[in-house]
C-alpha cells in the first residue's frame, strides 16, 4: 500500500490540523501579556512566574506526583502478576471472574468506579486522602498494565523459559533471568501508562479524595469552571512539553533498539 493520493494527503493534513491547532493556540496564548486569553497583547512569560508562586497549584502538583508514583508502582506489580496468571496460569477456580474483573474496569464509566470506591471507603471507615486515591488509581491502572503486559507475554516464545528450566534454573530464576528481561519494555510502558492515567484522572480522584488532598486535575477543573485563564494555559503548556518530550524520547529509544536488533540478527545470520 504505497500510493499517496491527494485525498489521503488532504485528509491527513486536515485531521492533524484539527488535532494540533487547539493545542498550539493554547501554547501561544500562555505567553500572552494580557489577562484576556483571546486577545494578543505582546509576548510575556509572567504567567509562568505567577504559577511558580501559586502555593495551591504547587501543593496540588506534589500530591499528584506522589499519588502517581505510588499507584503506578503498585499497579505495575499487580498488573504484571495478573497478566502472567492470565497467560500462563492455566485453569484455576474463578478464572472467568478474574479475567472479567481485569477487563471490566477498562470500559467502566469513571463516575461509577469513583462512586462505588467512595461508598466502600466510607463503609469501612477509611479516612479519605492520598491513601484512598492511591488505592483507587492502583485498581484501575493495574488492569491497563495487565493488558499491555499480557499482549507481550502472548507473543513471546515459551520454549525460552522451558530451556532455562531444563538447564537447571528454578522457576523464580527463569522468570528473573529470562521472562522479565523479555517483557521489560512492556512492563515499563505499562508503568508509564499507569503513571499518565493517574496524573490525568479527575473524576475518580474527586470522588475518592477528602479535604486533605487535592490533586492537580481537581485544582485545574475548579479553576477552569470559572472560565479561561492564562495561568492555566501556562500550566497546560508545561504539561504538554513534558509529555511531548517523553513520547519523542520513548519513540527514539524504540527505534534505536529496533535498528540494533536488526543489525544483531543480520550479524548472527552472517556468522
Amino acid at each position: 500500500m504505497n500510493k499517496t493520493s491527494w485525498f489521503n494527503v488532504v485528509s491527513l493534513t486536515l485531521g492533524f490540523a484539527f488535532l494540533y491547532i487547539p493545542m498550539i493556540i493554547l501554547i501561544i496564548f500562555s505567553f500572552n501579556e494580557s489577562k484576556l486569553v483571546t486577545v494578543w497583547a505582546g509576548f510575556s512569560t509572567k504567567w509562568y512566574g505567577e504559577l511558580l508562586h501559586n502555593e495551591a497549584f504547587l501543593n496540588a502538583a506534589w500530591v499528584t506526583i506522589k499519588v502517581a508514583v505510588f499507584s503506578s508502582t503498585i499497579a505495575t506489580v499487580l498488573g504484571t502478576m495478573a497478566a502472567y496468571v492470565l497467560v500462563r496460569g492455566g485453569r484455576f477456580m474463578g478464572r472467568t471472574l478474574f479475567s472479567g474483573m481485569i477487563y471490566a474496569p477498562l470500559v467502566m464509566p469513571e463516575v461509577i468506579t469513583g462512586l462505588s470506591l467512595l461508598l466502600l471507603f466510607i463503609g469501612i471507615g477509611l479516612d479519605r486522602g492520598v491513601l484512598t486515591i492511591v488505592l483507587a488509581h492502583s485498581t484501575f491502572s493495574m488492569c491497563y498494565v495487565s493488558v499491555v503486559v499480557s499482549s507481550r507475554l502472548v507473543t513471546f516464545d515459551r520454549s525460552l523459559e522451558e530451556a532455562a528450566l531444563d538447564l537447571g534454573c528454578s522457576a523464580a530464576q527463569a522468570f528473573r533471568l529470562v521472562t522479565l528481561p523479555i517483557i521489560a519494555p512492556a512492563v515499563i510502558s505499562g508503568w508509564l501508562l499507569a503513571f499518565t492515567l493517574s496524573l490525568d484522572d479527575l473524576v475518580i480522584a474527586s470522588f475518592t479524595t477528602g479535604p486533605s488532598a487535592t490533586t492537580l486535575p481537581i485544582r485545574i477543573f475548579s479553576a477552569v469552571r470559572l472560565g479561561v485563564s492564562p495561568e492555566i494555559n501556562a500550566l497546560s503548556t508545561i504539561m504538554i512539553a513534558i509529555v511531548t518530550f517523553g513520547v519523542i524520547t520513548a519513540s527514539l529509544i524504540t527505534k534505536h533498539q529496533m535498528v540494533r536488533q536488526k543489525r544483531e540478527e543480520q550479524e548472527a545470520v552472517r556468522s
Binding site: M23, D200, P217, I220, V243
Partner: peptide, 10 residues
C-alpha cells in the same frame, strides 16, 4: 498521552 482535561480546556 496529553491530559484529557487540558485538551477539553483548549
Amino acid at each position: 498521552w496529553t491530559s484529557f482535561l487540558i485538551r477539553v480546556y483548549a
